[in-house]
Computed example of a mutant assay.
Amino acid sequence: FALLIGFTTLVPYASALTIILVSAVLAVEDPRTGLEVLVAAISVGQVVDQLISPRLMGSIVGLQPAWLLFCLPLGARAGSLLGFGELLGLLLAVPVASVLKTFFDELYLRLEKVQ
């Protein structure tokens, strides 16, 4: 069951359905076990989504995790407002934020050299 849940985390929303399905199957035999699996899977998923993923993504693209947590909802909203969809806005949020950070870091270094 753990491998099934692990593999379906690669597909958006599939892991949530798999967790519910596995918990329901286990709950038929023992309701307590089904509830424990449900709580454990949701807890682990939240830790991965809220703590591990932002740190990992931040180290890869060179942004602080707080900036990632700020730019992702902003990208989704901008994508919705500009008419190209929230999903595309989410996909473009991190690269755009990384490019902007690189641009402003370079601008800061050049202005510092002038003074």
Rank of each mutant, 00 (worst) to 15 (best):
E86N: 06
F104Y: 11
L35M: 14
V44S: 08
T9G: 15
L92Q: 02
F103N: 05
F103W: 08
L74Q: 00
T9R: 07
L90G: 01
V22Y: 06
E29M: 10
Q50H: 11
P12S: 01
E36C: 08
G83S: 01
I19F: 05
L109R: 11
G85Y: 01
V25R: 15
K113P: 04
S59M: 10
V39S: 04
V48K: 03
E29K: 12
A16Q: 11
A40P: 07
A97S: 14
I52C: 09
G34D: 09
A41D: 11
T9N: 12
L68Q: 02
A40S: 14
Q115L: 13
A27L: 04
M57D: 09
L38W: 13
G83R: 03
S80H: 10
P65N: 01
G89M: 04
L88H: 15
V39Y: 03
A78V: 07
A41H: 06
Q64A: 13
L38D: 00
P95S: 06
R55T: 01
L68F: 04
D49Q: 15
L21K: 11
T8W: 07
G62Y: 03
L51H: 09
L21V: 12
R32Y: 11
I42M: 12
S98Y: 00
Q64F: 09
S53W: 15
V114M: 10
L17G: 13
P95W: 02
A16D: 03
R77K: 10
P73H: 00
S80W: 01
Q115T: 08
L3D: 13
R110V: 02
V11R: 01
